[in-house]
Design a protein around this nucleic acid. Sequence first.
RNA 1: GGGGGCGUAGCUCAGCAGGCAGAGCAGCAGACUUUUAAUCUGACGGUCGCAGGUUCGAUUCCUGCCGCCCUCACCA
Length: 501
Amino acid sequence: MGLEHTVASGLEKARLLREDSIEPYPEHTPPRTPIDIVLRSFEAGELNEPVGVAGRLVAKRAHGKLAFGDVAEGGAKVQLFLREGSADPSAVALFRRLDLGDWIWAHGPVIRTRTGEVSVDVRDLMLLSKIVRPLPDKWKGLKDHEARYRQRYLDLMVNPASRAVFETRAAVLRALRSTLDARGFLEVDTPVLQALYGGAAARPFTTHHHALDRMFYLRIALELHLKRLLVGGMSKVYEIGKCFRNEGMDRSHNPEFTLLEAYESFSDLDGMMELSEALVRAAAIEATGSARLPHGDGEIDLGGPFPRRPMADLIRERTGLDAFESPDDHLVEACAHRGLGEIPPAPSRAWLIDKLFSLAVEPTLLQPTFVTNHPLDLSPLARVDRSDPRTAARFELFVAGREVVNAYSELNDPAEQRRRLEDQRRLGDEGETHPVDDDFLRALEYGMPPAGGLGLGVDRLVMLLTQQPAIQDVILFPHMRPSSDDSPPHLEVPDDADHTG
RNA sequence: GGGGGCGUAGCUCAGCAGGCAGAGCAGCAGACUUUUAAUCUGACGGUCGCAGGUUCGAUUCCUGCCGCCCUCACCA
């Protein structure tokens, strides 16, 4: 039978169960003990009473008057053991009617079978929720990337490694928060829906606010609002939240992604380096139990402190060129030599340096490295570095060839900030203009304390710590093109459909 | 956006120099009192991604489209 028939027959089973006074979707679960605790206390010899367990039936081995099953819950699994004459007759009858994937509750003493398997010797059995669709193959799992991302619930059901990634993700978030909390940072929420976007160079998603009849944007960064809070006297703040960039998707870019930004008054680049080291180290230890990560044939040591290298020094080492002094065409040639496709008609020096760095240097930065002194034009929100005014007081932390942290000694001179942002707007390529946020500049005019700030790409840090090659593997529901299987791909929303307020 | 690959049963995969569409698991019917990928028997299960074209005949060849993967480009 085809899928429709299988589902129909599942629904039919649910109907028949109801006819026999067995509710397929009861509201209440009888008292139960989590399976991992049952196993632990049995092994410790502390379990002398019958227990209730609840979970999904993931295996079923029936032998006529004897039957075994496996119940899984929260990553733990216990065997069920049913004997005619021992189990309640209704339990025996119900077990026969169960399908793989049903949620069930079972109750009985915990025993060891002849082969030594810890098992619940079932006396009572109850159906908690009936499955009506067939599960993916129980041994081969679900491999198809598309299905794993579109139907993550199936992926989580049958691929334990996938569940582990998201448990690690939670551990990383926990470590980041507790590190910042312990240092006296205040966690805040700033608007996702904004009348004006800023804080990065990226195309925003747009939407329309009906009541105000004007365009709104989804935020592309957290920076400008968090800095307003420094002006307001919140001296250490951070936010962990979704940002949205309306650009290409690939295995390191999802249109919505999780960013951590933290700002600390009276701190500076040195302070941000120390904080970066603490955050990354804490995340690694919480996630993996160690600050040393296996990587390729060797390992990456996140113990710190990490070396600090000016960008131009690294470029000179790898290419022999002086990033700021060598002629343009030498840089262009060095880029082309390394496989750069198109070069814009009149590439700026900053563009060339950035490109050459990403081609020649980035892939070589396996061990954690603070790269400092970026071209000033690429860093409109950072202070000028006094020792080299062509560059910004900025660093990026690279690990395994990827940017993990980006930090500035924050520019707080309102006049210079206005100038830099307006320069940036003029540099905007192909008529793309980055709007200047006048309220942000007004806030700076009220005085922002000297401060250091950093941004950390949470998804990419999780990729690093879980050894996942694609950002889609660390986001529960990554963005996908609508497929015909999904609900209508495009819903027309009437202009006056503002019923939800 | 460019280039390459892939799309066959609910899942994992075969197959097809053009000739009735295959397996394992799951599901269905049955046998079985210590299994743990239980075993055994039987029956069922398909718009071969979608739409065209070539052909006596297309899952197979061609074109277009859709989706996914890889890669390049874009992305402070």
